[in-house]
Write a protein that binds this DNA or RNA. Structure first.
Lengths: 153, 153
DNA sequence: TTTGATAATGCAACAAAATTGCAATAATTT
DNA sequence: AAATTATTGCAATTTTGTTGCATTATCAAA
């Protein structure tokens, strides 16, 4: 059976960083925010355990850089991950958007287990280049991971 | 202006490996196939330059492992990447499926540049676990990256 | 409250993956 | 054929993530 977990101060601190973040965090951002408070290795281990517990998920962006974000509806062992990750090409933040993605029919023989979609472009806070600024709605940032605007049902 | 390129034997060899592959290649697979023929660092540099030229694209899978595959319709600087990447959880191969993905409406303020979708599950060549085998169509593998079955138009 | 089992941590060492500087080599252009 | 400079190989370095082990701290049970 699975090994028993303990609540520790370090785990709490890591969780706090996530709770206060409005978007996904790169490992180095986490490390920076936690610097001095715990060992580098501990952060890695806590992230691994959070991933296994379905508390956090790992998001490698299209360049291979690794981000982490709080999970919404995941359980230990299986991540519910059928949603969008939006990456702003300007400010580089990664935002989880809680909308299911529908996948077009795959060729015969493929059996889908799960889907994750990576959209990149300009986020509401960053101006598009060249073209004049498009008015942005500030509220949209609230769909960011971990903040649920409308209850997902 | 951008630095001028040269055609070299090494680049050709790397390109040949891609041309003969039926799915995306991990860096280490490339290295293995090219072992003895050129330096490790050279492979990295060639891949980078191919990526910039829009000849190849980089596909980090959901665990962060990095794959590379031939581009279909990309130009230097901008990758046309609105297609699916399918990863078989059994054999671990990554197959590019040349079908556009449609993205549901994003919240106000987001401007999409491009989309890539990562689907995982069982490929036509691998049996699903537990359940009895589902008949697989062999032909589907031909949609694999670099082999165009029907002209994409 | 104390005690014991063991999960979690810190530290040092290690391993893997990717990058950089630089001298030597080889593709192009003239 | 010579000059220019992109490309390569090599060694060293950086970045990223992991492992082993002694120590510490959590939690449950006495």
């Amino acid at each position: 059976m699975s090994r028993q977990k303990r609540n520790t101060k370090t785990k709490e601190m890591v969780m706090d960083v996530f709770a206060n973040a409005s978007s996904a965090l790169r490992y180095d951002e986490l490390e920076q925010q936690l610097s001095g408070q715990m060992n580098r290795v501990t952060i890695y281990r806590i992230l691994q355990s959070f991933c296994n517990d379905g508390k956090v998920h790992k998001i490698p962006d299209r360049d291979g850089k690794v981000y982490y974000a709080l999970c919404q509806d995941c359980e230990a062992g299986h991540h519910h991950d059928n949603h969008l990750h939006f990456r702003c090409v300007k400010c580089e933040s990664i935002i989880c958007i809680d909308k299911p993605v529908n996948i077009p029919g795959l060729p015969r023989g493929y059996r889908v287990q799960d889907v994750s979609c990576f959209v990149s472009g300009y986020c509401p806070n960053c101006p598009s280049p060249i073209h004049e600024n498009i008015p942005t709605g500030r509220a949209v940032h609230d769909v960011a991971c971990g903040r649920r605007v409308r209850p997902t049902r």
